[in-house]
């Protein structure tokens, strides 16, 4: 278990991370979510002991994070890049060796992972001959090759096409079942919604909202409906039962006022528009994210 308590990091006059606490348990994916510049990356860097926190306590399996944990940590930074002029296989082996793998193990694992990510044919190419997506696969391999107990991934899906996103998702889910502690940092809410069990929203360096995905949704999921229709839905906005609406040309997500029953609302609109689909929904993480961040701003 990774436990972060009262973490604060100040840079001169800017407080990048302000007194946040969370825990990341094994067998679950922990999502650290927030808009750009919220303090996610600083939180990660202090957690990893790359930079020293101004105050706060970070423990991994009940011990403070020190140099001895180097080999148990896998980290994929948000900004990507590798030694451009070097060969794929050389770069992978170098980083595996830095994580204390023997040369033979490094070669063996490199083989396994290059095959798993379907890029074994590129092993002798130079990094800068690779496409952006493939470079990213190499970085992913570097983060996971040494079988780390703690895996911290900053925007692991950006730059991948849907097929490769699925590939990475499957691998992450397999890590969950093998008991790794995984921290995922992203602003792609749909991915976070599918993968994360625990969520931590951060904005302006402060905690905004946290808990299990199910709890968060329950708290926010007051009275949301989704409706598909033919024809104009302009009248929906002026309906007195509507508290908030995300309207598109023939689709809308609506938050109803507290006392309105969804069924009564349906009855009130069927005569005005041809309803094709009507359902009561939990709010998407995307919606929660936007609401939560807007509130705090």
């Amino acid at each position: 278990m990774l436990l972060v308590e009262n973490l604060t990091k100040k840079f001169k006059d800017v407080t990048a991370v302000n007194n946040i606490s969370f825990k990341v348990e094994s067998g679950k994916i922990f999502g650290l979510l927030g808009p750009n510049g919220a303090g996610k990356t600083t939180a990660i860097r202090t957690t990893l002991n790359i930079i020293k926190p101004t105050s706060g306590k970070i423990t991994f399996e009940n011990k403070p994070i020190t140099d001895e944990f180097f080999n148990a940590i896998g980290y994929l930074p948000e900004e990507r890049g590798l030694y451009k002029k070097s060969k794929v296989i050389d770069v992978i082996i170098y980083f595996a060796r830095l994580k204390n793998l023997s040369y033979n193990d490094a070669v063996k694992q490199a083989d396994i992972w290059l095959n798993k990510l379907e890029i074994n044919n590129l092993r002798h190419k130079k990094i800068d001959e690779l496409s952006k997506g493939n470079q990213q696969k190499i970085q992913f391999i570097i983060a996971v090759l040494h079988n780390p107990k703690l895996l911290i991934l900053d925007e692991p899906f950006s730059g991948f096409d849907p097929i490769n996103q699925q590939l990475i998702k499957d691998i992450l889910l397999s890590f969950v079942s093998s008991g790794k502690i995984i921290m995922l940092c992203t602003h792609q809410m749909d991915t976070a919604e599918k993968l994360c069990n625990d969520i931590f929203f951060i904005n302006n360096g402060k905690e905004v909202c946290s808990g299990s995905l199910a709890d968060i949704k329950k708290n926010f999921g007051k009275n949301h409906i989704k409706i598909e229709f033919d024809g104009g839905g302009e009248f929906l906005e002026s309906n007195p039962a509507v508290l908030h609406i995300d309207a598109y040309s023939n689709y809308a997500e609506i938050e109803l006022k507290e006392k309105i029953q969804p069924y009564d609302f349906l009855k009130s609109i069927v005569e005005k528009v041809k309803v094709k689909h009507f359902s009561v929904i939990e709010p998407t993480l995307n919606k929660i994210f936007i609401d939560v961040i807007k509130q705090t701003n």
Partner: peptide
Amino acid sequence: EEKSNRLIEILISS
């Protein structure tokens, strides 16, 4: 190079 592409962060976490 290592600074601009943040490789340094992987190195420093190793």
